[in-house]
Protein backbone atom coordinates (compact mmCIF):
# COMPACT_ATOMS: atom_id res chain seq x y z
CA UNK A 1 0.00 0.00 0.00
CA UNK A 2 3.00 2.24 -0.33
CA UNK A 3 1.55 3.84 -3.40
CA UNK A 4 -1.56 4.82 -1.51
CA UNK A 5 0.34 6.55 1.29
CA UNK A 6 2.32 8.38 -1.40
CA UNK A 7 -0.94 9.52 -2.86
CA UNK A 8 -2.23 10.76 0.49
CA UNK A 9 1.06 12.58 1.18
CA UNK A 10 1.00 14.29 -2.16
CA UNK A 11 -2.71 14.87 -2.48
CA UNK A 12 -2.65 18.65 -2.12
CA UNK A 13 0.47 19.44 -4.15
CA UNK A 14 -0.78 17.19 -6.94
CA UNK A 15 -4.22 18.77 -6.78
CA UNK A 16 -2.55 22.13 -7.27
CA UNK A 17 -0.52 20.80 -10.21
CA UNK A 18 -3.56 19.17 -11.74
CA UNK A 19 -5.74 22.26 -11.43
CA UNK A 20 -3.09 24.42 -13.11
CA UNK A 21 -2.58 22.12 -16.07
CA UNK A 22 -6.28 21.25 -16.15
CA UNK A 23 -7.31 24.91 -16.47
CA UNK A 24 -5.05 25.19 -19.49
CA UNK A 25 -6.45 21.98 -21.02
CA UNK A 26 -9.96 23.32 -20.43
CA UNK A 27 -9.24 26.55 -22.28
CA UNK A 28 -7.85 24.71 -25.29
CA UNK A 29 -10.63 22.12 -25.15
CA UNK A 30 -13.22 24.85 -25.61
CA UNK A 31 -11.94 25.49 -29.12
CA UNK A 32 -12.38 21.84 -30.08
CA UNK A 33 -15.77 21.54 -28.52
CA UNK A 34 -17.30 24.76 -29.87
CA UNK A 35 -16.16 24.06 -33.42
CA UNK A 36 -17.52 20.54 -33.10
CA UNK A 37 -20.77 22.02 -31.84
CA UNK A 38 -21.38 24.18 -34.89
CA UNK A 39 -19.68 22.15 -37.62
CA UNK A 40 -19.52 18.55 -36.25
CA UNK A 41 -15.84 18.68 -37.15
CA UNK A 42 -12.69 18.11 -35.12
CA UNK A 43 -10.39 21.01 -35.87
CA UNK A 44 -7.05 19.24 -35.62
CA UNK A 45 -5.26 22.46 -36.56
CA UNK A 46 -6.36 23.90 -33.20
CA UNK A 47 -3.09 22.78 -31.59
CA UNK A 48 -1.30 25.12 -34.03
CA UNK A 49 -3.53 27.99 -32.89
CA UNK A 50 -2.10 27.28 -29.44
CA UNK A 51 1.44 27.07 -30.82
CA UNK A 52 1.19 30.46 -32.50
CA UNK A 53 0.38 32.12 -29.20
CA UNK A 54 3.61 30.83 -27.66
CA UNK A 55 5.56 32.48 -30.48
CA UNK A 56 3.54 35.67 -30.11
CA UNK A 57 4.48 35.71 -26.44
CA UNK A 58 8.12 35.17 -27.40
CA UNK A 59 8.00 38.09 -29.81
CA UNK A 60 6.16 40.35 -27.40
CA UNK A 61 8.76 39.85 -24.70
CA UNK A 62 11.93 39.44 -26.69
CA UNK A 63 11.44 41.93 -29.50
CA UNK A 64 8.70 44.39 -28.62
CA UNK A 65 9.29 44.89 -24.90
CA UNK A 66 12.94 43.79 -24.86
CA UNK A 67 12.50 42.11 -21.51
CA UNK A 68 15.86 41.41 -19.89
CA UNK A 69 14.89 41.04 -16.24
CA UNK A 70 11.70 40.12 -14.38
CA UNK A 71 9.47 43.11 -13.61
CA UNK A 72 7.16 43.90 -10.72
CA UNK A 73 4.25 46.20 -9.88
CA UNK A 74 2.70 48.22 -12.69
CA UNK A 75 5.50 47.26 -15.09
CA UNK A 76 4.64 43.61 -14.59
CA UNK A 77 0.96 44.24 -15.16
CA UNK A 78 1.76 46.01 -18.43
CA UNK A 79 4.00 43.12 -19.47
CA UNK A 80 1.39 40.50 -18.62
CA UNK A 81 -1.27 42.31 -20.63
CA UNK A 82 1.27 43.05 -23.35
CA UNK A 83 1.88 39.34 -23.71
CA UNK A 84 -1.63 38.06 -23.20
CA UNK A 85 -3.52 40.37 -25.55
CA UNK A 86 -1.35 39.92 -28.67
CA UNK A 87 -1.24 36.17 -28.01
CA UNK A 88 -5.05 36.04 -27.95
CA UNK A 89 -5.39 38.25 -31.04
CA UNK A 90 -2.87 36.40 -33.19
CA UNK A 91 -4.36 33.04 -32.24
CA UNK A 92 -7.87 34.24 -33.06
CA UNK A 93 -6.67 35.55 -36.42
CA UNK A 94 -5.02 32.23 -37.23
CA UNK A 95 -8.13 30.31 -36.18
CA UNK A 96 -10.25 32.44 -38.50
CA UNK A 97 -7.76 31.99 -41.34
CA UNK A 98 -7.86 28.23 -40.86
CA UNK A 99 -11.64 28.35 -41.13
CA UNK A 100 -11.48 30.60 -44.19
CA UNK A 101 -8.96 28.54 -46.16
CA UNK A 102 -9.17 24.99 -44.84
CA UNK A 103 -12.88 24.55 -44.15
CA UNK A 104 -15.05 27.15 -45.86
CA UNK A 105 -14.18 26.12 -49.43
CA UNK A 106 -15.13 22.54 -48.51
CA UNK A 107 -18.31 23.67 -46.82
CA UNK A 108 -19.40 25.66 -49.89
CA UNK A 109 -19.03 22.58 -52.08
CA UNK A 110 -20.77 20.34 -49.59
CA UNK A 111 -17.74 18.08 -49.27
CA UNK A 112 -18.06 14.84 -47.29
CA UNK A 113 -17.03 14.85 -43.64
CA UNK A 114 -13.86 12.87 -44.34
CA UNK A 115 -12.54 15.71 -46.51
CA UNK A 116 -12.81 18.08 -43.56
CA UNK A 117 -10.78 15.70 -41.42
CA UNK A 118 -8.01 15.46 -44.00
CA UNK A 119 -8.11 19.21 -44.52
CA UNK A 120 -7.75 19.70 -40.75
CA UNK A 121 -4.73 17.43 -40.50
CA UNK A 122 -3.25 19.03 -43.60
CA UNK A 123 -3.67 22.52 -42.16
CA UNK A 124 -1.99 21.37 -38.96
CA UNK A 125 1.03 19.99 -40.81
CA UNK A 126 1.17 23.00 -43.10
CA UNK A 127 1.36 25.44 -40.20
CA UNK A 128 3.85 23.35 -38.22
CA UNK A 129 6.29 22.97 -41.08
CA UNK A 130 5.82 26.54 -42.20
CA UNK A 131 7.14 27.49 -38.76
CA UNK A 132 10.03 25.07 -39.11
CA UNK A 133 10.96 26.66 -42.45
CA UNK A 134 10.60 30.21 -41.15
CA UNK A 135 14.19 30.35 -39.94
CA UNK A 136 15.36 33.11 -42.22
CA UNK A 137 17.11 30.67 -44.57
CA UNK A 138 14.30 29.40 -46.75
CA UNK A 139 12.17 30.94 -49.43
CA UNK A 140 8.77 30.06 -50.78
CA UNK A 141 8.89 30.57 -54.58
CA UNK A 142 9.47 34.34 -54.65
CA UNK A 143 9.22 35.26 -50.98
CA UNK A 144 11.99 34.95 -48.46
CA UNK A 145 10.43 33.49 -45.34
CA UNK A 146 11.04 35.65 -42.26
CA UNK A 147 13.11 34.47 -39.32
CA UNK A 148 10.29 33.72 -36.90
CA UNK A 149 10.63 30.21 -35.59
CA UNK A 150 12.90 27.57 -37.13
CA UNK A 151 13.39 23.95 -36.14
CA UNK A 152 14.80 24.53 -32.63
CA UNK A 153 13.04 25.80 -29.48
CA UNK A 154 13.54 29.43 -28.50
CA UNK A 155 13.72 30.57 -24.91
CA UNK A 156 11.10 33.11 -23.86
CA UNK A 157 12.38 35.80 -21.46
CA UNK A 158 11.06 35.49 -17.91
CA UNK A 159 8.85 38.41 -16.99
CA UNK A 160 7.90 37.43 -13.49
CA UNK A 161 9.74 36.25 -10.39
CA UNK A 162 8.07 33.29 -8.68
CA UNK A 163 6.85 33.83 -5.14
CA UNK A 164 4.43 32.09 -2.85
CA UNK A 165 1.06 33.81 -2.51
CA UNK A 166 -0.55 31.51 0.03
CA UNK A 167 -0.22 28.04 1.50
CA UNK A 168 -3.05 25.54 1.82
CA UNK A 169 -2.46 22.26 3.70
CA UNK A 170 1.30 22.86 3.58
CA UNK A 171 1.07 23.30 -0.18
CA UNK A 172 2.46 26.58 -1.46
CA UNK A 173 0.63 28.23 -4.35
CA UNK A 174 2.94 30.38 -6.45
CA UNK A 175 1.84 33.69 -7.94
CA UNK A 176 2.07 32.18 -11.44
CA UNK A 177 -0.22 29.27 -10.59
CA UNK A 178 -2.71 31.61 -8.97
CA UNK A 179 -2.72 33.78 -12.09
CA UNK A 180 -3.27 30.76 -14.34
CA UNK A 181 -6.11 29.35 -12.27
CA UNK A 182 -7.84 32.72 -11.78
CA UNK A 183 -7.40 33.84 -15.37
CA UNK A 184 -8.73 30.53 -16.64
CA UNK A 185 -11.70 30.63 -14.28
CA UNK A 186 -12.51 34.20 -15.32
CA UNK A 187 -12.29 33.46 -19.04
CA UNK A 188 -14.32 30.29 -18.78
CA UNK A 189 -16.97 32.21 -16.84
CA UNK A 190 -17.07 35.04 -19.39
CA UNK A 191 -17.30 32.54 -22.22
CA UNK A 192 -20.10 30.67 -20.54
CA UNK A 193 -22.07 33.92 -20.09
CA UNK A 194 -21.30 34.93 -23.68
CA UNK A 195 -22.72 31.73 -25.10
CA UNK A 196 -25.74 31.68 -22.82
CA UNK A 197 -26.75 35.32 -22.63
CA UNK A 198 -25.73 37.26 -25.71
CA UNK A 199 -27.41 37.38 -29.08
CA UNK A 200 -24.36 35.93 -30.80
CA UNK A 201 -24.22 33.20 -28.17
CA UNK A 202 -27.80 32.33 -28.95
CA UNK A 203 -26.84 32.20 -32.61
CA UNK A 204 -24.04 29.75 -31.84
CA UNK A 205 -26.38 27.55 -29.86
CA UNK A 206 -29.00 27.71 -32.57
CA UNK A 207 -26.54 26.69 -35.30
CA UNK A 208 -25.30 23.89 -33.09
CA UNK A 209 -28.82 22.56 -32.59
CA UNK A 210 -29.97 22.75 -36.19
CA UNK A 211 -28.00 24.79 -38.68
CA UNK A 212 -30.67 24.71 -41.37
CA UNK A 213 -33.47 25.84 -39.10
CA UNK A 214 -31.23 28.53 -37.61
CA UNK A 215 -30.47 29.90 -41.05
CA UNK A 216 -34.20 29.97 -41.88
CA UNK A 217 -34.77 31.92 -38.69
CA UNK A 218 -32.34 34.55 -39.94
CA UNK A 219 -29.10 33.51 -38.26
CA UNK A 220 -26.08 34.31 -40.41
CA UNK A 221 -24.36 30.94 -40.29
CA UNK A 222 -21.07 32.08 -41.78
CA UNK A 223 -20.80 34.83 -39.23
CA UNK A 224 -21.59 32.44 -36.40
CA UNK A 225 -18.91 30.03 -37.61
CA UNK A 226 -16.28 32.76 -37.89
CA UNK A 227 -17.10 33.99 -34.38
CA UNK A 228 -16.92 30.44 -33.04
CA UNK A 229 -13.45 29.95 -34.49
CA UNK A 230 -12.36 33.38 -33.24
CA UNK A 231 -13.57 32.70 -29.70
CA UNK A 232 -11.87 29.29 -29.69
CA UNK A 233 -8.72 31.04 -30.93
CA UNK A 234 -8.88 33.67 -28.19
CA UNK A 235 -9.11 30.94 -25.57
CA UNK A 236 -6.24 28.89 -27.05
CA UNK A 237 -4.19 32.08 -27.31
CA UNK A 238 -4.67 32.84 -23.63
CA UNK A 239 -3.89 29.22 -22.81
CA UNK A 240 -0.61 29.37 -24.75
CA UNK A 241 0.42 32.54 -22.97
CA UNK A 242 -0.37 31.08 -19.53
CA UNK A 243 1.40 27.83 -20.45
CA UNK A 244 4.63 29.73 -21.16
CA UNK A 245 4.17 31.90 -18.08
CA UNK A 246 3.72 29.08 -15.59
CA UNK A 247 6.01 26.43 -17.05
CA UNK A 248 8.77 28.68 -18.39
CA UNK A 249 9.20 26.44 -21.44
CA UNK A 250 10.60 27.68 -24.76
CA UNK A 251 8.44 28.41 -27.81
CA UNK A 252 8.63 25.51 -30.26
CA UNK A 253 6.88 24.54 -33.49
CA UNK A 254 5.82 21.21 -31.99
CA UNK A 255 4.69 22.62 -28.64
CA UNK A 256 1.00 22.39 -29.52
CA UNK A 257 0.96 18.67 -30.19
CA UNK A 258 0.71 17.23 -26.66
CA UNK A 259 -1.54 19.92 -25.13
CA UNK A 260 -3.68 19.70 -28.27
CA UNK A 261 -4.16 15.94 -28.00
CA UNK A 262 -4.79 16.23 -24.27
CA UNK A 263 -7.32 19.02 -24.72
CA UNK A 264 -9.11 17.06 -27.43
CA UNK A 265 -9.24 14.15 -25.00
CA UNK A 266 -10.59 16.49 -22.34
CA UNK A 267 -13.31 17.68 -24.72
CA UNK A 268 -14.36 14.09 -25.46
CA UNK A 269 -14.18 13.22 -21.77
CA UNK A 270 -16.53 16.05 -20.87
CA UNK A 271 -18.83 15.43 -23.85
CA UNK A 272 -17.76 16.79 -27.21
CA UNK A 273 -19.81 19.80 -28.22
CA UNK A 274 -20.65 20.60 -24.63
CA UNK A 275 -18.98 23.80 -23.38
CA UNK A 276 -19.27 23.11 -19.67
CA UNK A 277 -18.24 19.55 -20.42
CA UNK A 278 -14.96 20.77 -21.89
CA UNK A 279 -14.26 22.71 -18.71
CA UNK A 280 -15.01 19.72 -16.49
CA UNK A 281 -13.12 17.37 -18.80
CA UNK A 282 -10.05 19.61 -18.83
CA UNK A 283 -9.86 19.90 -15.06
CA UNK A 284 -10.53 16.20 -14.57
CA UNK A 285 -7.83 15.21 -17.05
CA UNK A 286 -5.31 17.55 -15.39
CA UNK A 287 -6.08 16.06 -11.98
CA UNK A 288 -5.95 12.45 -13.20
CA UNK A 289 -2.56 13.07 -14.77
CA UNK A 290 -1.16 14.66 -11.62
CA UNK A 291 -2.56 11.98 -9.28
CA UNK A 292 -1.21 9.20 -11.48
CA UNK A 293 2.38 10.14 -10.62
CA UNK A 294 2.28 9.24 -6.89
CA UNK A 295 -0.14 6.38 -7.56
CA UNK A 296 1.48 4.56 -10.46
CA UNK A 297 4.60 6.51 -11.46
CA UNK A 298 5.34 9.20 -14.02
CA UNK A 299 5.69 6.70 -16.85
CA UNK A 300 2.03 5.75 -16.40
CA UNK A 301 0.61 9.25 -16.75
CA UNK A 302 -0.67 8.92 -20.29
CA UNK A 303 -1.82 5.34 -19.79
CA UNK A 304 -3.84 6.38 -16.76
CA UNK A 305 -5.37 9.34 -18.55
CA UNK A 306 -6.53 7.24 -21.47
CA UNK A 307 -7.77 4.38 -19.30
CA UNK A 308 -9.96 6.92 -17.52
CA UNK A 309 -11.18 8.16 -20.90
CA UNK A 310 -12.08 4.65 -22.03
CA UNK A 311 -13.83 3.89 -18.73
CA UNK A 312 -15.88 7.07 -18.89
CA UNK A 313 -16.88 6.42 -22.49
CA UNK A 314 -17.80 2.81 -21.66
CA UNK A 315 -20.37 3.94 -19.14
CA UNK A 316 -21.26 7.29 -20.65
CA UNK A 317 -20.61 7.11 -24.40
CA UNK A 318 -21.39 10.80 -24.84
CA UNK A 319 -18.98 11.93 -22.13
CA UNK A 320 -19.52 13.14 -18.59
CA UNK A 321 -21.84 16.02 -19.38
CA UNK A 322 -23.34 14.49 -22.51
CA UNK A 323 -23.31 15.76 -26.05
CA UNK A 324 -26.00 18.40 -25.64
CA UNK A 325 -24.83 21.49 -27.44
CA UNK A 326 -27.70 23.84 -27.87
CA UNK A 327 -29.20 23.98 -24.42
Amino acid sequence: MEFFSNFVDQFWPQTRNGLTLGSIYAMIALGYTMVYGVLQLINFAHSEVFMVSTFTTLFAYRDWFNVVAPASGVGLLVLLMGGLIPAMIFSAVLAVLIERFAYRPLRKRGAPRLSFLISAIGASFFIQYLFVLMDGQHSLIFFDLPNIAGPSPQTVPTVMETSTVFTVFDTPFSNKRVIVILAAALMLFVLDRFVRQTKMGRGIRAVAQDAEAASMMGVDINRVIVVTFAVGGLMAGAAGFLYILVLGVPAFWFIGFLPGIKAFTAAVLGGIGNIRGAMVGGLLLGLVEAYSVPLFGAEWTDVTAFVVLVLVLLFRPTGIMGEEVGS
Partner: peptide
Protein backbone atom coordinates in the same frame (compact mmCIF):
# COMPACT_ATOMS: atom_id res chain seq x y z
CA UNK B 1 10.72 7.65 -15.76
CA UNK B 2 9.12 10.66 -17.45
CA UNK B 3 8.71 10.85 -21.20
CA UNK B 4 11.10 13.17 -23.04
CA UNK B 5 9.65 16.22 -24.71
CA UNK B 6 7.02 16.96 -22.06
CA UNK B 7 6.54 20.49 -20.79
CA UNK B 8 5.01 20.14 -17.34
CA UNK B 9 7.15 18.24 -14.83
CA UNK B 10 5.35 19.62 -11.75
CA UNK B 11 3.81 16.29 -10.80
CA UNK B 12 7.23 14.58 -10.89
CA UNK B 13 8.75 17.42 -8.87
CA UNK B 14 6.05 17.19 -6.20
CA UNK B 15 6.88 13.50 -5.97
CA UNK B 16 10.58 14.33 -5.52
CA UNK B 17 9.77 16.87 -2.81
CA UNK B 18 7.47 14.47 -0.98
Amino acid sequence: GAAAGADDYSALISDVQA
